[in-house]
Amino acid sequence: MSDNQSPSSPVVDDPWAEAMNEQAASEKGASGSDLSSDTVFKSITSPGAGEPSLRDLAMIGDIPLVLEAMLGSAKMTVKELLSLSPGSVVQLNGLAGAPLEIYANKYLLAKGEVVVTNDHYGIRITDILSPSERYQHLAK
């Protein structure tokens, strides 16, 4: 205790404890029952079913994703980068004929091969990674 406080003076409450108490009080419903996460957040899967329903999939169907295909990559110095000019060739680490890696929002999702259709490049998906393979690539 400091010299300024006498033993009879009230102790200043912890602001974090006050905030937690306020939050707990605000979560109480009008009936006085405590709102649990089960009533606030509903499961998007049908009760007792392991697979999401069509309605649940429709809810996430409009979420935008960025799909990218990677031929390969190259490391170079800034000096080498600045010396590039039209007609320069940058050698990538990917081998010719090797499958492309397909990423969805920067996460490896599948592998495929380049195709040309009506003067547009496309990708034919040859392999989709299993969930366990995707988790392995997330850890890298």
Rank of each mutant, 00 (worst) to 15 (best):
S8D: 09
G72S: 01
D3C: 03
N118G: 13
S33F: 04
D34A: 07
I123H: 05
A24M: 07
E101N: 10
L138S: 06
S132C: 00
N105P: 07
K79A: 12
S46P: 04
S85P: 01
A98P: 11
A24I: 07
G29W: 05
S26L: 07
P86L: 05
L71R: 00
A69E: 02
I123S: 06
D14Y: 05
S53P: 07
A96Q: 14
E80P: 06
P99I: 10
T77H: 03
G50I: 05
N4V: 13
V115G: 12
E22T: 08
I60R: 10
S26D: 07
P47T: 09
K111I: 01
K42Y: 02
L57R: 12
L84R: 02
Y121I: 15
N21I: 08
L95G: 12
G50A: 09
A17R: 14
S53V: 05
I125G: 04
A58I: 11
M70A: 04
A30K: 10
N118P: 02
D14C: 14
H120C: 13
I60H: 04
S37M: 07
M70D: 03
S37W: 03
V89P: 01
N105A: 06
A17G: 06
N4P: 00
L54W: 00
P47M: 08
I125Y: 05
A24R: 11
S36L: 08
L100H: 07
A17H: 09
T77W: 04
Q91T: 11
S85I: 02
D34V: 13
Y103I: 01
V40A: 07
I44Q: 08
Y135G: 00
E51A: 08
A139R: 13
I128E: 09
S46C: 03
M76Q: 05
L81F: 15
L57I: 13
M76H: 01
V114P: 14
D38G: 06
L95E: 14
D62E: 13
P7H: 06
S73R: 03
A19I: 14
S37H: 03
G61E: 14
D127V: 01
T126H: 08
L82C: 05
A110T: 06
F41W: 09
V66T: 14
V78N: 03
H120E: 12
D127W: 02
A104I: 13
G112N: 11
Y121V: 14
D3F: 10
M20C: 00
Q91S: 07
S31C: 08
D62H: 14
S31G: 15
M59S: 13
V89H: 00
L54E: 11
L35D: 04
P47E: 13
Y121N: 10
S130W: 04
E80N: 11
A74D: 02
A17L: 13
A139G: 01
